[in-house]
Write a protein that binds this DNA or RNA. Structure first.
Lengths: 149, 149
DNA sequence: CGCAGTCTTTAGAGTTCTTCCAGATTGTTG
DNA sequence: CAACAATCTGGAAGAACTCTAAAGACTGCG
């Protein structure tokens, strides 16, 4: 009853949890990012959404916030195209489909993909992360619209 | 005996093979790229090398050439960092180590890495390529210098 | 060989994405 | 609520890349 009336509560806790001051801008952006299903956004996209949602925020702040959230482990950066960064709200270990035609990025569901027999890291280094991008191109038939992005 | 005295012959054939006019610039860049072992370079890097090698060529031409070689299948583009493109002279199917500290990109040798149980592509699409990046960070001990890049 | 005619190259301007800056604003703490 | 620090902002700056229009270099044909 109470929580239902306080939509900010969840994201607020999230910001406090990582020691980021809960400003109007950060709260608003966090709601856009974390309320609803997993998302993959660029800074420009998120900025556009923020303006549409009547959240006055500058592009510089969107960049700052995305980077801070990423450092704090709330987001994960995914690089698939030169000169563009995507931010993924799903920080668990998983991989991606990238639709080259449209620039859409999607999680590969479940554990449908396994990397077998990882090579050992060269001397003096250790593996920090393994990224797999499955690049897709549009086929003859039109794709169905997905729920999330 | 003869071929040993004509170092340009191999790259010349290569350019002719893909229908690119063998200009001084393209020949020079092709030699830097394809004579010697497999390489991973950025446009700026290659431009620097060209100048050091007394090959007068503009940065715009380096970009043009790298893109043309890629379209022709002589190179493969690899994206690992936001806002930077690497070009790989090894066009066969393989994956990469990326050393986050230094920005070095290296091939993962042999078939030491296998992607198991690829998910099926979403309706209306088909898989064009699968990229695997194993991201490394430097450990305590210093890494040994590699032969190629 | 020589000269169209076409393809390439080039310097510099332009684009896009992102970060930096310095001053104004906001959140927090006592 | 004052004071201090953290944050936000628009605009300038930067990095990587592409575009443009004019000059230069190959190639094929005569």
């Amino acid at each position: 009853m109470m929580t239902a009336n306080r939509p900010y509560k969840l994201v607020l806790d999230r910001l406090n949890g990582v020691g980021l001051r809960p400003t109007r801008q950060r709260l608003g952006l966090a709601r856009l990012l974390f309320e609803g299903c997993d998302r993959h956004v660029t800074a420009e996209q998120l900025h556009g959404e923020a303006l549409s949602a009547d959240l006055r925020v500058s592009l510089a702040t969107v960049y700052n916030t995305l980077n801070q959230f990423t450092e704090a482990g709330l987001l994960r950066e995914v690089v698939v195209e030169a000169g563009k960064s995507y931010f993924d709200t799903n920080t668990s270990e998983h991989h991606h489909f990238f639709l080259e035609n449209t620039g859409r990025l999607e999680d590969i569901p479940g554990d449908h993909l396994v990397v077998q027999s990882l090579p050992k890291a060269p001397v003096g280094t250790r593996i920090a992360r393994v990224d797999v991008i499955v690049r897709l191109v549009e086929d003859a038939s039109p794709a169905t619209a997905p729920f999330c992005d």
